[in-house]
Design a protein around this nucleic acid. Structure first.
Lengths: 337, 337
DNA sequence: CGAAGTACCGAAAGCGCTTTCGGGAAGAGG
DNA sequence: CCTCTTCCCGAAAGCGCTTTCGGTACTTCG
């Protein structure tokens, strides 16, 4: 492959000139630049990224960190859409993504430490757990950062409009005639969870609907199983709801399972509306009506915010809230009688 | 954060000694090592990875490349499971994953070039397209590599036992009494596709079942939509099959949709068995019977093969075939009458 | 024809680390 | 007391690149 030094020897110029030719400095004549470039392709020379980073202090790498309760990592059906879109957007600018382990030569270290070690130019964290110590540490650092799906005053964030999403869901159910509307909530340690609860309460209030006791149940961390269990609690109630707004699609799938297992029908007996619009829900029965979060937009916005900081070389504290949309499918119906 | 030089100044030792202390050389006394380590935590020193890689020629990074027809990247419901497991396994050994863009400072380059530029220690490619020029190039290089889901004599590979999987599926349908068994195949440019076709033919032959004309249809690149269209072809046949073995779960979902839209019932009218066992199929109706590929095992095997090469510093050509398993759910039933 | 630009090139220092090699001090052995 | 080890430590070169700064050679202009 060869180094810049080999190129110098081959062409007869100094390594300085070679480097300049390669980097489009203008104090090198067209003629010699051409020769050097030519020689470069001949010996298919490639610059060594480490050497470059060492002297320029720029690594063209972005560290990514996931933090979610279920530890599914890239299998997360919602987060992986965001990351994919983020990747596209940053790739265009020449950045690579690095997924850091927390293990440096068998020495434990925090993500922040690892990212500093790797000298990444910026960090993206996709995080649902507000309390995550590691994430806090990252946010307090001075590396450009953007966090997705969580709010914070300390750094730039992007998340979708959870309040509005909840309002959309509740109002939609209301328009279908439902009055007994329950909410299967995401855990309050997550911003998404709490915001949707807030939106639910606000919407109910705006509609002059009381929240009956037991109608607001914490369904944990957005898993199918937790959704199922939480729905069972609703079904055990004396006065069952006729519709339920579920804070996540996977939980909604669990909820529907519970309803079916109790011999009831969705949406005829109970309407269910989810949140996220992950791919699989268009294939289940009934196809799930949901609030769509635009993963593409979220990823792009995150990329944009991070890129800005990296080029400006200063941290920002911008808040980008991405609009959501109601996707009508088949899991909601007008209330009976 | 400081450099090794700062540490030297602070402790009064030379940078040589500091470096040695940090790297557990034994020609530095316990006393001075302790002092240096102490000073290191005090100024929370972290070694610069680029500088280290530059002088050691080891980057502790593994390049990952996806290559699949639908360009969904990390959203791929099967591949992302593999990558996640691969990540876990390599993380334990202290490696980071890097997803390279094909764009270096707005200069196009191949993945191989980019990986060389980044000086990764190894490469994992998850690839379904046998013809991918980029993948070919990677395989021909001298960097340690492991490729998943594809066969090759040039490098170490891991994929699951597609022949056996197909046999399992066909035999299962046979035992349910089916004789008219069709196959919705993955495209022949993919190894997984062709292998399953081969397994299908072998199994049919072993059972003395002729493959009726039109019963083997290419359903393309494993998408829902393609599965649906291919199934429609089957349904348009004079003599419809009573069971169909579909080369991928997503295609199977499409197939079921097509069947339903034609007013038929799964599994009462037609049995469907899929392949992969992606998460969502346990939530559709009917729950899909399928051949499970063990993504955890595949990822781990890939990691193992790659790690071996990286420590041995020589390429291997091992072939690791991961067993598959029939997962019985609700989309297959005994043949009618 | 001399002075002031202008265009092009290279020496050298520096980025932060590793590793070889040699050397001094202390202890062991005769 | 002298030699031979053993134990510690440091000088220095090197990894591959960037960038400042200065220096030639050549134009241009008055």
């Amino acid at each position: 492959m060869g180094t810049i030094y080999d190129l110098a020897k081959k062409t007869g110029f100094s390594i300085t000139t070679v480097s300049k030719a390669l980097n489009n400095y203008k104090d090198v004549s067209e003629k010699t630049r051409a020769k050097i470039l030519q020689a470069a392709v001949e010996m298919d020379y490639l610059p060594n990224a480490h050497a470059q980073s060492l002297s320029t202090k720029k690594s063209w790498a972005i560290g990514v960190m996931f933090s979610e309760a279920n530890e599914v990592g890239m299998k997360h059906p919602f987060f992986n859409g965001i990351i994919e879109s983020f990747r596209h957007a940053t790739e265009e600018q020449g950045y690579d993504l690095i997924f850091a382990s927390r293990n440096l030569r068998n020495r434990d270290m925090s993500y922040l430490e690892h990212f500093k070690h790797r000298a990444v130019d910026g960090i993206v964290v996709i995080c649902s757990d507000r309390m995550d110590e590691q994430v806090q540490e990252l946010m307090r650092s001075d590396i450009p950062i953007v966090v997705v799906d969580m709010d914070s005053a300390d750094c730039s964030v992007v998340y979708s409009d959870n309040i509005e999403g909840a309002r959309l869901a509740v109002n939609y159910l209301y328009e279908l005639g439902h009055r007994k509307i329950a909410h299967l909530a995401g855990d309050e340690t997550t911003d998404a969870g709490t915001a949707r609860v807030e939106g639910y309460k606000l919407a109910m209030q705006g509609l002059d609907l009381p929240i009956q006791p037991g109608y607001l149940v914490n369904a944990g961390f957005f898993s199918v199983e937790e959704g199922k269990q939480a729905m069972q609690q609703l079904l055990d109630l004396e006065d069952r709801p006729t519709a339920v707004f579920v804070a996540g699609d996977q939980m909604a799938i669990g909820a529907i399972e519970a309803i079916h297992e109790n011999g009831l029908h969705v949406p005829n007996d109970i309407s269910v509306i989810g949140y996220d619009d992950i791919e699989m829900i268009q294939y289940i029965t009934p196809k799930l009506t949901t609030i769509r979060q635009d993963t593409d937009e979220i990823g792009e916005a995150a990329a944009e915010l991070l890129l800005e900081q990296m080029t400006a070389k200063e941290r920002s504290q911008e808040r980008r809230i991405i609009p959501v949309k109601l996707i009508e499918r088949a899991s909601c119906a007008p209330v009976k009688e």
